Computed example of a mutant assay.
Amino acid sequence: MRFALSPEQRDFAAALDELLAGADTPGVAREWAERRFEPGRKLWRELADLGVWGLLVPEEHGGADAEPADAVVALEACGYHAVPGPVVETTVVAPRLLGGDELARVAAGESMVTAAIPPEVPRALDADAADVVLRLDGTAVQRISSDMDSGGRMPSIDATRGLFPAAEHGEVLGAARPHAFALGVLGVSAQLLGAARRMLAMATEYASQRRQYGRAIGQYQAVKHLLADVTVSLTMARPLVDGAAVTLASGAAEPVVMRDISAAKVAATRAALLAARTSLQVHGAIGYTAEHDLGLWLTKVRALAGAWGTADAHRTRVLTAVRGEHAD
C-alpha cells in the first residue's frame, strides 16, 4: 500500500507552513516557557481560522469531521514549528472526550483542552493555560481541577511543557468515544516526525554554511552520511505513522489499532532522537546554548519521547500483539 497526501492535504500543509513560518514560533515558545500565554493564544486563534482544532470534531458541532490522517498533517506541522501548548490533547483527544457546546468551542478555537489518561498519561499538560482540564477514568470522562500553584507544576526537560497533577475525582461529563489514548499517541508521533524534519533541515542548512579547512562541512562524506542516516530513519517512520492513521479510521479492533499506533510511536521516537543527536553533532558547541533555536527542538523531542508511553512500553505492546496473532 502506498501512502501519499491528497491535493487537499498538501494545500492544508502548505497553508499551515506559511502561517507558522511567519509567526516567530521560537519566540512564542520562549514566552510560553515563562508562562506568558497571550502570544501562544494569539497563534492558537490563527490556527483555529485554518480549522486545526476542529479537524476531528463532527460537523454538527462546527468541525470538519476529518480523518486521523488530516490531524497527522496538522500535528506534524506543529512539531516542525515547535508550537507550544496541549496541541495533541486539543486536536485529537478532546473530540473523543467532549460533546455538545464544549466541543463546538474547541472547534472555534475558544477552548484549549488538556487531559490526563492514567496510568500512561498521569499528568495534565499545561493545565495552567487550558480552559478545560479532563481526566479519563476507564470510560468515564471527568472535568477536574489541577494543582496549579507554584508547587504543583512538575519539571520537564522541555521548558515549554508544564505538567500538573490531576485530581482523582471530578464532575462526570459522560462516556468517552473509543481510541482517545490511541489518538494521543498518534498525535505525539506526528509531532516527533515534524520535529525530526525541522532538526534535519537545520543541520543541513548549518552544514552548508559552516566551513572548515576551506570547505563547507556538508561537503565531507562523514557529515553527509550522518544526515543521510536521519533521512532514512524518517523515511522508514513516516509510513508507520500514516499507516496507523489509516488503521484508526478503518474501524479495526483495539489490539490491531494499538499494535499499529505503538509501532508508529517507536519508529517516530527513534527517528526524532537520531535527528536530535545528529543535529547537535553537526552544530557543535553552539547547539548547546540556550540562545540557539535548536535547543527548543532538542528538549521537545526528549520530552515527547516519553510522553504518551515510552518506546519500551510501546515495543512491549507490539510484541504482545504479534505473539497473539501468531499463537496456535
Rank of each mutant, 00 (worst) to 15 (best):
Arg123Ser: 08
Val57Arg: 11
Asp137Lys: 09
Ala107Ser: 14
Glu171Gln: 03
His169Asn: 13
Asp137Val: 05
Ala108Met: 10
Arg211Met: 14
Thr299Lys: 08
Thr310Ala: 05
Thr247Trp: 04
Pro122Asn: 06
Asp260Cys: 01
Ser145Ile: 00
Asp328Cys: 01
Ala222Asn: 10
Leu55Glu: 07
Met154Val: 07
Gly54Tyr: 05
Ala33Glu: 00
Met148Arg: 15
Arg177Val: 12
Asp49Phe: 08
Met199Arg: 13
Pro122His: 04
Gln221Thr: 13
Leu163Arg: 00
Leu97Met: 14
Arg30Gln: 11
Trp53Pro: 09
Gln221Pro: 09
Leu97Phe: 13
Ala237Val: 12
Arg211Trp: 07
Arg96Thr: 15
Pro178Asp: 09
Phe37Trp: 08
Asp328Glu: 05
Asp101Ser: 12
Arg323Met: 02
Val256Glu: 12
Gln281Thr: 13
Gln209Phe: 06
Val87His: 01
Pro155His: 01
Arg161Asn: 04
Asp131Thr: 09
Val246Leu: 09
Ala77Ser: 15
Leu16Ile: 10
Val72Tyr: 08
Ala228Lys: 12
Gly309Met: 12
Leu200Glu: 11
Ser279Pro: 07
Ala124Val: 15
Met199Val: 14
Ala264Pro: 09
Gly251Trp: 05
Ala176Phe: 03
Ala13Val: 03
Val322Arg: 09
Ala263His: 00
Asp65Ser: 13
Gly214Glu: 01
Asp70Thr: 12
Val223Lys: 00
Ala15Gly: 11
Ala124Asp: 09
Pro68Trp: 12
Leu97Gln: 10
Val318Ser: 08
Ile217His: 13
Gly151Met: 01
Pro118His: 06
His61Tyr: 10
Ala33Arg: 00
Leu163Met: 02
Leu98His: 06
Tyr288Met: 11
Thr90Asp: 15
Leu186Thr: 08
Gly51Tyr: 08
Asp328Gly: 07
Ser233Glu: 13
Leu103Lys: 09
Gly54Lys: 12
Val185Gln: 14
His326Gly: 00
Val121Lys: 14
